[in-house]
Design a protein around this nucleic acid. Structure first.
Length: 424
RNA sequence: GGAGAGGUGGCAGAGCGGUUUAACGCGGCGGUCUUGAAAACCGUUGUGCCUUCACGGGCACCGGGGGUUCGAAUCCCUCCCUCUCCGCCA
């Protein structure tokens, strides 16, 4: 949620920033401002009534103690009307507060000044591109065929066990998954991130705080018997560690990394582009999360991008970095870079990482604050990024590194896989 | 899953309908003393919202929600969580 104080004090700036998303920013904000005004007048009136009742109650106590029964009874008679007012005002306040919160939930984060305008992925800016695309023979196979040929990836078995989009890995394919997870974790730890193993299910409060609810309700698997959600990313449990927390300034930045499986319903996305590992309901991901002082957050974002670039280089994958345009950015993000790798047989770019700065949008919901120089709590900035998401990395490695002898493993990974080639 | 006990300020721990605007202690911060430090002593000490140019003032918060009452940390209902014992179990 955007901060009310921001919408109040820098309303014009907020509208301008939000306009990059091609939404009716002025209208959304005007409605929120209206509700906020009503809320404040109601609160002021309610507080005054409450104060009146408190005074009266105190005086009744004193009168009773002094044995002045008659006067006490007279005072007591006055309270009925006040209590009625209080109840009515309280209900009014509750209603307007709910409406205000709902309205604020409709307003996405305000894009950073550097976010390009635009509506679709075509308007994203390619910041850089690195690595040579492999030259593959005409009959080079996409990863889903290679997976079957080598007996390491079985989409059909996943269908049998669960349904479409739940891959089964076996043998060297399974080992490759585990190797990548360890590799990514070790690299993040070496870069100063503390490893976290969080729960894979969260409650509604957590899902709300990081913005999955109410916006993306249909995208999460929901265990209704217990009211829990399967996490779509480790971002949710790890960021929620800091919900309702005030951290001392000298504890910042906080850097966490966590490996978890990720579960996404991906409702409504079918077609040729979702074959094999391109889009699945369950995949593994190593996620990095940072909590920063506002003045450091964008430098931290660049640092996270550099970290991910290092991983992709060591995996010998051609990749490019995109700066997402306003229309393609996630709801909660202020600025997002996507990292994509080249899958040589499909001849497509596959998104393997999304690295975002949320400014105070998440921390406002989380009530995640730090104590600044003046000892007053202030909202911190949150950031996160995939480092990295496995399934598509595996797809690209398989496709790009296919040879007549087998699938070659990147050198940096061989210490983790224990083999240099996947063979039949 | 069953039975019992309990959830109070950064920690520890009283309070169990109206001198609680939450005691005492520890810790934190500021000060006095001191060459400096320790000790001692004095003061101070949370979060959110409303209001005010400001100083300040008001309201709410004793696990969450609801109720009784003129008045609730204190009584009632309900949910959540923790601990102990029993049962089950990787």
């Amino acid at each position: 949620m955007l901060e009310l104080s921001y919408l109040r004090e820098l309303r014009e700036e907020a509208v301008n920033r939000l306009n990059k998303r091609n939404i009716d920013a002025a209208g959304l904000i005007a409605k929120a401002a209206d509700l906020d005004g009503t809320r404040r007048t109601t609160q002021t009136a309610l507080d005054a009534k409450q104060s009146e009742l408190n005074d009266l109650s105190r005086s009744i106590g004193e009168l009773m103690k002094g044995g002045k029964k008659t006067e006490a009874e007279a005072a007591r008679a006055q309270t009925t009307a006040i209590k009625g007012d209080i109840q009515r005002m309280q209900e009014e306040l509750n209603a307007v507060e709910t409406a205000l919160r709902d309205q604020l939930c409709l307003i996405p984060n305000a894009p950073n000044a550097n976010v390009p305008p635009g509506k679709t992925p075509e308007d994203n800016i390619t910041v850089m591109e690195e690595g040579d695309k492999p030259v593959l023979p005409e009959d080079a196979k996409p990863h889903w065929e290679l997976g079957e040929d080598y007996g390491i990836l079985h989409m059909d078995l996943g269908v049998k066990l669960t349904g479409a989009g739940f891959p089964v890995y076996s043998g060297q394919g399974a080992k490759l998954q585990r190797a990548l997870i360890s590799f990514f974790l070790d690299r993040a730890i070496a870069a100063g991130y503390e490893e976290i193993i969080p729960p894979h299910m969260v409650n509604a409060e957590s899902a709300f705080a990081t913005g999955q609810l109410p916006d993306k309700e249909g995208q999460m698997y929901h265990a209704t018997a217990d009211g829990l959600y399967l996490i779509p990313t480790a971002e949710v449990p790890i960021t929620n560690l800091y919900r309702d927390v005030i951290v001392e300034a000298d504890k910042l930045p906080i850097r966490n990394v966590g490996y978890t499986p990720c579960f996404r319903r991906e409702a409504g996305s079918y077609g040729a582009h979702v074959r094999g590992l391109n889009r699945v309901h369950q995949f593994d991901k190593v996620e990095i999360v940072r909590i920063e002082k506002p003045e450091n957050s964008y430098a931290a974002l660049e640092g996270m991008v550099e970290h991910v670039k290092g991983l992709l280089r060591d995996l010998e994958l051609p990749y490019r970095q995109l700066l997402l345009c306003g229309g393609d950015m996630g709801f909660s993000s202020a600025l997002t870079y996507d990292m994509e790798v080249w899958a040589g047989a499909q001849k497509r770019w596959l998104e393997v990482s999304s690295i975002s700065c949320f400014e105070t949008y998440q921390s406002n919901r989380l009530k995640l604050r730090y104590r600044g120089e003046d000892k007053k709590p202030k909202l911190a900035h949150t950031l996160n990024g995939s480092a990295l998401a496995l399934a598509r990395i595996v797809a690209a490695i398989m496709e790009n590194n296919q040879t007549p002898e087998g699938i070659r493993m990147p050198k940096a990974l061989q210490a983790y896989t224990g083999f240099d080639m996947i063979r039949k």
